[in-house]
Design a protein around this nucleic acid. Sequence first.
DNA 1: CTGTTAGCGCTTTCAC
DNA 2: GTGAAAGCGCTAACAG
Lengths: 339, 339
Amino acid sequence: MRPKITLKKIAKEFNVSISTVSKALKDSHEIGIELKEKINTYAKLHHYKPNSLAVRLQNQQSKVIGIVIPNIVHHFFSTVIQGIEEVTNENGYNVMICLSNESFDKEVMNIGMLSNGSVDGLIVSMSKETQRNNSYDHINELIDNDFPLVMFDRVKEELKCDKVIIDDVNGSLNATDHLIEIGCKKIALITTPSHVTVGQLRRKGYVNALQKKGVQVDLDLIAEIDERQNIQDQIEELFEEQEFDGIFAVNEVYAVTAMNIARNRGLNIPEDISIIGFTDGPISKLAIPPLTTVVQHGFSMGKQAAQLLLKRIESKVSYEPQKVVLSTNLKIRKSTKSV
Amino acid sequence: MRPKITLKKIAKEFNVSISTVSKALKDSHEIGIELKEKINTYAKLHHYKPNSLAVRLQNQQSKVIGIVIPNIVHHFFSTVIQGIEEVTNENGYNVMICLSNESFDKEVMNIGMLSNGSVDGLIVSMSKETQRNNSYDHINELIDNDFPLVMFDRVKEELKCDKVIIDDVNGSLNATDHLIEIGCKKIALITTPSHVTVGQLRRKGYVNALQKKGVQVDLDLIAEIDERQNIQDQIEELFEEQEFDGIFAVNEVYAVTAMNIARNRGLNIPEDISIIGFTDGPISKLAIPPLTTVVQHGFSMGKQAAQLLLKRIESKVSYEPQKVVLSTNLKIRKSTKSV
DNA sequence: CTGTTAGCGCTTTCAC
DNA sequence: GTGAAAGCGCTAACAG
């Protein structure tokens, strides 16, 4: 790469001092108008741009915020990132994204890397492995140092940091309620293993809804999908062993997979069986029939997380951790009977 | 945020010089074993981590590579990012992602920002607006400065930089060929406006395939979708006005949307009409019937792009731009008749 | 109007 | 064995 042009070189070119050049480029009134013009045209010609590392070191802030997420090939997460990008950019920050790929070790490494002055603050959503391990030393270290941090979606309640979460319990409570209202008598739940917090919360909403209506919760109607195995087979198994006329699934893929299996078994949707998914993405919209879903507003989540973080970064004083809970809404399409 | 612990502070703590501490932490043989131990435990205790901005400024390299892409909420792009992440991480680099949101101005800004020493190299895929404007000064500036750059997918042939592209022409040629082989007589093409290079190339493959078989290309069978309008309506219009028994669509969404419209119109798939999409993602897999697609290997694309870039960054001498062309393969599922 | 100086946090060479 | 000093590119307070 061609050596970068620096203040020093420009200074040498005109036989002036570095600070003169620096001021000239900033259009300081202290510098002679002629000299300023010469320096500026020269700089423009050579595409001078201040070395951002130097500037950032000087200012003791990087103007970049770090994002550590488990995965990016996932409509929800990429939506959140878009939201984050939007508000950080508006405020002159850039983002640095690191993927943990659901691995605890990578998450720890990423957070370690980024918090070394690379970024001014961190937005993180935990990997499944971290949640399974239940170890949060890497997060607590940040918190102990008052490092600006906001967690979103996959959070740990006990951690003393800003958080943005979806109201998972109410989202699935409403979904389950809706299934009951349209007349479903036996509602299956397709969820994650219990260590995934959002899965757990959505399960809670499902259970609460049933209990509120005095319906006995039948554990056999609950399938916990282990993603290390074949998803389709596991859902198929549920159909083999149980009978039901409603399904609530904690994500798009489970929901659409279930819908496809149902159809293959000769069931009509929504006449024979109504299905609701959680998370609204392209899969749900294009499914046949279009899937009724609990819409979680990823974009808005990203924006809020970024706002919390910037507030924290830019605040001189420290204040209590804040928690933002985003409510969901039910997008009724064609995979559920009408009331 | 609690003030970061620095070499200086540790030095003061032990009444030694900064350089002694620096060496001690690097386990230099020049330092007394006792002092070394004391310093190291102290550092560990206080979670000392070298300020990466300072280190990077010193080394004149950031060990981060920048990615500028139009969009992240898109399965293909996020797959590419995963690939990039994988190889850069293996080599001790981090990634910084900036989204242009298909805007020319944002793309120019992002590239400007990142190339100021923030990153050691850039991987970019152009925004649609850039392609429409046909202006590449921002890219050429990088090239003129020998700034390490690799473009992928949405590239401009004339630009003298490393590139990784999909063999779009052959991919769609094969797809169209396949439709012909299974007996389709009239094949519609659902594509992008012609300024989108990949759309143009895929159209070329379609045209070539037809011509090779001596089939006359009927322009009325080609729909160019303007994404600023309603996609569904535009495809619907094609069905209204034309008759055909095969469809080749340049992406998943167009393909599945077309498939759904066809079904709504009482057509059986694949008996009455066969459909192939370009790009293989979750939508295609979960569609009913599962969509036959041209698989473009995004993950591999990302890996190759990153490899080219690292090679460029780490090479002392400059060498001719390289171009990697990735071939696709046809994943036959249920939306096409069997031969 | 222009220059000197110190300093951001760290590394490295060279003295002692 | 330990430290002083220079330098990475830039900014800013202070002199002249």
